[in-house]
Each structure stands twice: as C-alpha cells, then as structure tokens.
Amino acid sequence: MPIPKIEITNPQALEIMGKVKSGEIFIPLATWFKKSKWYLISILIVTILLIALVVGKNLSEKTPVPVFAPPDIESITPPEVINLKSDFSGLKEEIQNLNTDLPDPFIPTFDDNLKLEEVVN
C-alpha cells in the first residue's frame, strides 16, 4: 500500500521547519548551556561521585571482610575427674567434727556457800 505524501502548507510550521533547518532554533539552547556550563559540570561530577559510591558500596558488600584472629593455641582439656566417694567418708566427717575443746559442755557456776551471814572471801 503506497504511503500518501504529506505536504506541509501551514506557514507557522514552515517557519519552524526553516528555523530547524538553519539551526536558528537551537541558538537559545546553546546560549543557556554556555551560561550554565559550570553548573552542569558540577552536577555531572557529583552524579559521577554518587554513582562511584553506590558501585563501591555494592562491591564491598559482595566481598567478605577478612577476619584477623590470633592463631589457635592448643588448649588442654582437663581430664574428666570421677569422684569416687567412699562409704566411710561419714566416719571421717565425724572425726573431723569432734570438738576437742574442754570443758565440753561448759560447767555452770554455782554458789555452794549460801548463808545469811556476810561471806568473807
């Protein structure tokens, strides 16, 4: 199916097309770029830095952090002590608990000299 040829007759469109062809339409844009050149460069640098940071972070997360631990020292495991208890430990405790102090029990004091007269000591 043949494509119908479109002929532009609108004078305003023809004017715009003429400006595009001559490049006149891009002059204000080029002027604006010239004016904002340093802004644009700054934004670009910041963007590049941000991208670098994001990329660096992603890379660091993927790489495991090396752990620096002291070398293993050979540890001595204490041997398992089996506490055998003798049937006669009770007798030993009885001997240990024997009170060797005397008098045990303490002898109470009594007054053997009860009189109604004055007692001369």
Binding site: L84, S86, D87, K92, I95, Q96, T100, D101, L102
Partner: peptide, 25 residues
C-alpha cells in the same frame, strides 16, 4: 593438757581413716 592429747588422738584417727578410705577407693 588433755585437750592436747585429744587433738593428737583425733589426728591419728584422721590418718587412720584416710588410709582406710584409700584402700576402699
């Protein structure tokens, strides 16, 4: 003096029972 003797006997009895427990174990 008696306290000293009793302590001495107690020490000997402890020595004896330690010997017996050693044989037992």
């Amino acid at each position: 003096g008696k306290i000293e003797t009793i302590k001495k006997i107690q020490t000997l009895q402890l020595k004896w029972i330690d010997g017996l427990i050693d044989i037992d174990l």
